[in-house]
Each structure stands twice: as C-alpha cells, then as structure tokens.
C-alpha cells in the first residue's frame, strides 16, 4: 500500500518458496519476512500492524545522524 502513496517506493510480494535464491540473499529464514531498503536496510519477521510497520519504514528512511 505504501508504494501507492509515494512514487519513490517500490513494493514486491515474493513467494519465498518459489524464489529461494532471492529469499536467501535477503536472509529470510521464516515467513513472513519483510526487508526495507532505504537509506539503510531494516528487516523484521512476522506481520506488523500499521503503526509498527511505519516505525520500521521511518527507521529505514530517516536521514543519517550528524
């Protein structure tokens, strides 16, 4: 959903069993597993509610501390 709100966001829903190489490269050991690549990479296992997901999205995209 986030991708529809901001043209700088691209979202992929990946069948981990069908693409084990891609899953392996992203450190997926269980599903669901989310990887957000922004200014930094953030990954978490399980399905997060909206507020928690947004917190992770912010963590991945916030400018680096000076």
């Amino acid at each position: 959903m986030a991708a529809m709100e901001n043209p700088r966001i691209l979202a992929y829903a990946v069948d981990a069993a069908e693409f084990p190489g891609l899953a392996g490269r992203h450190g997926v050991r269980s599903v669901p597993h989310t990887v957000i690549d922004g200014r930094r990479q953030v990954a978490f296992a399980g399905r997060y509610p909206e507020a928690q997901f947004l917190a992770e999205l912010q963590r991945a995209t916030s400018p680096p501390a000076r």
């Binding site: 966001i9 990946v14 069993a17 669901p32 690549d37 999205l57």
Partner: peptide
C-alpha cells in the same frame, strides 16, 4: 500514515517474503 509515507524523500524498496 499517508502523510508520513508521502513525506519520505528517499528511494525505498520493500520486499515482503511469504509462502502460499
């Protein structure tokens, strides 16, 4: 949530791995 997402000024790729 929409306001927060629209304010993001970095390129972002989200990959959600799951199983059917």
């Amino acid at each position: 949530a929409r306001a927060l997402i629209r304010a993001i000024d970095a390129d972002v790729v989200i990959r959600v791995f799951s199983s059917p």
